[in-house]
Amino acid sequence: MPSLKDLRNRIASVKATQKITKAMQMVAAAKLRRAQTAAEAARPYAERMAVVLGNLASGITVGPETPRLLAGTGSDRVHLLVVCTAERGLCGAFNSSIARLARDHANRLLAEGKTVKIICVGKKGYDILRRQFAEQIIELIDLRAVRQIGFEQGDMIAQKILNRFEAGEFDVATLFYSRFRSVIAQIPTAQQIIPAQIETSAGAPDAVYEYEPDEGEILTTLLPRNLTVQIFRALLENAASEQGARMSAMDNATRNAGEMIKKQTMTYNRSRQAMITKELIEIISGAEAL
């Protein structure tokens, strides 16, 4: 049976924790709003890009002239996994669910006898994955110093991936991130980025396009840009998902702490009452004995 002082201390510490989780929840809510607007503002660009690429790709036939970013290298021996996670923890299952998806994917590829290389964006994913894939991780991209994700970060990561692709370090690249559905639902997603997955518009454009400069050249400038846009979008979706996950995790923690305080206070009051009763009985029985 803990003493009254112990109970008091325990209640005080749970209260302090509750204050922290409450504050974190509110901070996450404020950040979420910003991240969500950023993610939504970036959507039109990515959508238009997909439409334009679709128009363009439906007009050409895949041949030896087609850029390798679209047609692939012709083999799928070496896979690159780009795993985007958060830089900070305390956001529920956010990081671990992305890492789990990437791990399952990597294990499946390894079982098929493929070579796997991993680039981690964000420290948390690296921390989880390095236990199992220490030799496979070739790079860790740290975005801790970045406060608001801009197009430059997407560009920087895309550049690194492109350089490796041109150096022939891998054949297929897949991007792992968490798609933001709502505050309570974030869906870990795997998306193949190289060779580009392009939805060609079902009804081919009836109008004949004129290209300036020619199609091939436009396609070669467009494909790297598309890569940047996809990564940029993944980063923004991830940022919004992270805040959403943190918000609901902290909300749960706050509620949990509240329940705990309630229970502890009940025990505290009970044992205090028991003590008083015991003392009274002692006094009364002492008086009666006289």
Partner: peptide, 18 residues
């Protein structure tokens, strides 16, 4: 546009340019 400035008016024929 990369190959010189151009003006787009209503009814312009389909074109794609960098």
């Amino acid at each position: 546009a990369t190959e010189g400035d151009m003006t787009v008016l209503a009814g312009h024929s389909p074109v794609m340019t960098t």
